[in-house]
Simulated assay, not measured.
Amino acid sequence: MKIQKLTIIIPAFNESEILVNSVHRLLAIEDQVAEQHADMLGMRADIVIVDDGSTDQTWSLVEKLHKENPRVRGLQFSRNFGHQAALLAGLQEAVKTADFLVTIDADLQDDPEKILDMVSMAMDGDEIVYGVRNNRESDTWFKRTTAQGYYWTLHVLGVELVPNHADFRLMSKRAVNTLLSYPERNFFIRGIIPKLGFKTGEVDYKRTPRLAGESKYPLKKMLSFAWEGITSLTIAPVRLILCLGVLACFLSIGMVIYAIVMKILGLTDHGWSSLMVSLWFVSGIQMISLGVIGEYIGKVINEVKGRPRYTIQTIIE
């Protein structure tokens, strides 16, 4: 498969400490790709940086990098819309001219050298190439355990997801256009891409520590992202509530039979503790159920409103 143009998309939020080094490294990798595939005449490569409402000097650095090298382009959000929105905005802009698009985080903890392998696999016919971590030795025990639990939970709920894959991937123009045709606002990219159905491949890599700056995914944000993925891709939690309701009905029938038997035997001395425990337990289940259902109703409201996923303030072509 011939590639006329390759674009690397970088979502960035307060990445001023590392952005310049990352961009220079990616430009060098693009040069390596062009050199390895010199037979593909006319191949071009550039980088699109999406500033997700940064409050530091990230956008100033994007402007400076563009002046130094026109291959660096930029989009600036009017405020912080989130990592997924930044990825979508970058894809929306880059797919206008690129044949293949690579997304990678600005910290380059995902091995950018694997882009060379991704391009080779794309030339062989793969339209989506996932970057997959081959180990989690660099993670803490807590993060490693919760990540495994998350993938297991999604699998049980029937969600098709590539384990140990974040947002480091290569996609063809056709795959990106198909992804962008999905109209929903509650967009969980990692879960939707496997549903596209195109030929896929994987490259393994070992994640490296950040060279500078702080992680933009603390525990609170990771939990929110995990819940967003579950509620965006499956209604299994609502079905679980139905199952709990049915189970509660059967238990209540059992308790009625138990009460009748106790009445007949004359053993009807009920304690205050058991009554309170039952009330708190049932009330807790009701509140959780209402919360889960409310979450889905809220998502439906957002879809009906049809608000834009993001607002672009500035574009550097």
Results as ranks from 00 to 15, higher is better:
Leu267Gln: 11
Thr311Lys: 12
Leu91Ile: 04
Ala12Trp: 03
Thr146Val: 13
Leu19Pro: 00
Val48Tyr: 08
Ile3Thr: 08
Leu65Ala: 06
Ser278Glu: 07
Val23Gly: 01
Pro183Gln: 07
Gly125Met: 00
Gly229Asn: 09
Leu65Cys: 08
Ala147Gln: 13
Gly294Tyr: 03
Thr231Gln: 09
Gly298Val: 07
Tyr150Gly: 03
Val261Ile: 14
Thr268Gln: 11
Val261Leu: 11
Ser60Arg: 12
Glu202Ser: 14
Asn80Ala: 12
Met40Asn: 06
Tyr296Val: 00
Val72Glu: 02
Thr231Asp: 05
Pro237Val: 04
Leu87His: 08
Gly149Met: 04
Arg73Thr: 14
Val282Thr: 15
Val277Met: 06
Met287Ala: 11
Ala28Tyr: 04
Asp46Cys: 03
Leu290Asn: 12
Thr140Lys: 02
Ser78Trp: 02
Leu161His: 14
Lys216Cys: 02
Ile253His: 05
Val282Ser: 14
Gly266Asp: 03
His83Val: 04
Ala175Leu: 01
Ile3Met: 03
Asn80Tyr: 11
Val72Phe: 04
Ala122Ser: 14
Val261Phe: 09
Glu303Asn: 07
Tyr310Pro: 00
Leu75Gln: 05
Ile10Trp: 06
Gln57Asp: 13
Thr103Tyr: 06
Glu93Phe: 14
His165Asp: 03
Pro308Leu: 02
Ile285Leu: 15
Gln57Trp: 05
Val33Leu: 11
Met287Cys: 10
Gly291Gln: 02
Glu93Thr: 10
Ile29Thr: 09
Gln313Arg: 11
Gly291Thr: 09
Val292Arg: 02
Asp99Pro: 02
Asp51Val: 05
Ser215Gly: 15
Ala34Ile: 12
Ile260Trp: 12
Arg174Tyr: 05
Ile288Glu: 05
Ala28Gln: 14
Ala175Trp: 00
Ala122Met: 10
Val246Met: 07
Asn134Gln: 10
Gln4Tyr: 08
Ile316Gln: 01
Val304Leu: 15
Phe13Gly: 01
Ala89Glu: 00
Ala122Thr: 10
Leu251Asn: 09
Trp272Glu: 02
Gly82Trp: 07
Thr208Asp: 05
Ala248Leu: 11
Val119His: 14
Ala38Cys: 05
Met43Gln: 15
Tyr130Ala: 00
Glu317Lys: 10
Thr314Asp: 15
Leu27Tyr: 08
Ala226Asn: 13
Gln109Ser: 14
Phe13Leu: 15
Val162Lys: 08
Ser289Phe: 02
Asp51Trp: 03
Pro163Cys: 04
Phe77Cys: 00
Asp269Asn: 15
Asp107Arg: 02
Ser252Trp: 09
Lys195Phe: 06
Ile241Met: 07
Trp227Arg: 12
Phe281Ser: 10
Phe13Val: 09
Arg210Asn: 05
Arg73Trp: 04
Ile49Ala: 01
Glu93Ser: 06
Gln286His: 11
Arg71Asp: 03
Gly42Lys: 07
Ala94Asn: 03
Gly74Leu: 01
Val304Glu: 11
Ala85Tyr: 01
